[in-house]
Design a binder for these strands. Structure first.
Lengths: 225, 225
DNA sequence: TGCACAATGTACGAAATGGTACGTTCAGTC
DNA sequence: GACTGAACGTACCATTTCGTACATTGTGCA
């Protein structure tokens, strides 16, 4: 991602340019991501983003028109990054049960490791998803997610280890809910119930429980004796 | 809650006062709840709250010192309201399985019917729960919630319908997660997956699935044939 | 009835904040 | 090397926004 640091790229070494628009843009976006995810759309300050950038406030408006557009780009970049990581997951060669298990654990861990993304989605929901609605990019990015899960599920039904009649979209909803909540509500939950939810051992426990829960929900009912 | 409407109370009818601090306070708090839950702490405007109140901005500062204190009171009032409704739930006379079922459905529906509360909790999490941490009131309010669930669970284990080894706190976490996510992420989820999640029939489906999921998680494993 | 204090209205101040005008420098092209 | 447009810096403006000073009215009580 930081390819414009003028070290190996022939194009870059030749040019030796002082102006580096790509990197300036990326830098602004990175700072904006931190600021927006930390303080929200209304809480984040353009001046503060400008300060933390190696560019100036002028540059923010030069590349991103206004605050809301910058926020939208931040949101899009975040979704893009997530879906890119998801794409690396290769479930086709795994048995359905293992595949589902892996998908759940991946989602759980991924969310836990990317609180910035989670917070941005929370913030976007506070805004009723009105920016997400403007972005065709995000809509298209997410199209495939359900298909992957749906494929695993259908294979599982075919092999007889998953019960029939479930909707992949609802299944994805369940997995998302548990993984998302783990990050989104960590602060209030931990404080109210005086529980070190973020501690590694508790995170491990939760990951196991979540995986267990999804599997128990999907697996075929075992016949009573 | 709206006891100061000067209709039946003898004290009120006698006095016929023009100054009505209690009701002004309550009015401010009600408006503030709407504004904060809609726009967040930084997004909400004191001037706008003042406009929508039948009192003036001066009164807001008179009763609530500053913006953050007003927000804190809003949060406390919201939690209080919720816990009050929860307290009405009487699970002791129900069989463990029925009790758990009812608890899950209640939580799910309650959250769905109180998006303002959910949004406030989301916002509070964006702020890392730092206001909730200041409030001894909220801490104390939530103490009993786990106990109720824990009681049902233990009864279920005793009767042999629930499996052993589960932590009531983690069980509560699961129920909360699913019920909370249903409201908190409705906008982004519905838009991304082009799903009318808020539609009554889908809400009913989700409620059933969530209940089903929790029960499947808690019930004893049925023996294989 | 008048006093003390709570409750309320009006107007204003100071700082923060989104956004812009205007000028300057850089880099590729003829 | 002059020209052009992209890339960038500085200073500034208009508005918003939290909060307050000050004056006024209502209310219970001696």
């Amino acid at each position: 991602m930081t390819a414009t640091s003028a070290t190996t790229s022939p194009k870059e070494t030749r040019r030796r340019r002082k102006n580096d628009p790509e990197s300036v843009r990326a830098d602004i976006l990175a700072v904006a991501t931190r600021e927006f995810s930390e303080k929200g759309l209304s809480g984040a300050r353009i001046d503060e983003i400008a300060e933390k950038t190696r560019a100036s406030k002028r540059m923010i408006y030069y590349y991103f028109s206004d605050k809301e557009t910058l926020y939208l780009h931040t949101l899009e970049a975040a979704y893009q990054k997530v879906r890119l990581q998801e794409a690396e997951l290769d479930l086709d060669h795994l048995a359905p049960l293992d595949a589902l298990c892996r998908l759940v654990r991946f989602t759980f861990c991924h969310h836990a490791k990317n609180p910035d993304f989670i917070r941005l989605v929370m913030i976007e929901n506070i805004h009723h998803g009105r920016f997400l609605a403007q972005s065709e990019l995000i809509q298209s990015l997410n199209a495939g997610v359900i298909d992957v899960l749906g494929d695993v599920y259908l294979r599982g039904v075919a092999t007889g280890c998953f019960r029939e009649g479930l909707d992949p979209r609802e299944l994805h909803w369940l997995i998302s809910a548990l993984s998302f909540f783990n990050v989104s509500n960590q602060h209030t939950f931990a404080r109210i119930f005086d529980w070190q939810q973020a501690a590694p051992e508790n995170q491990q426990k939760l990951e196991d429980h979540v995986t267990d829960m999804v599997l128990r929900y999907v697996r075929v009912d075992r016949v009573a004796p």
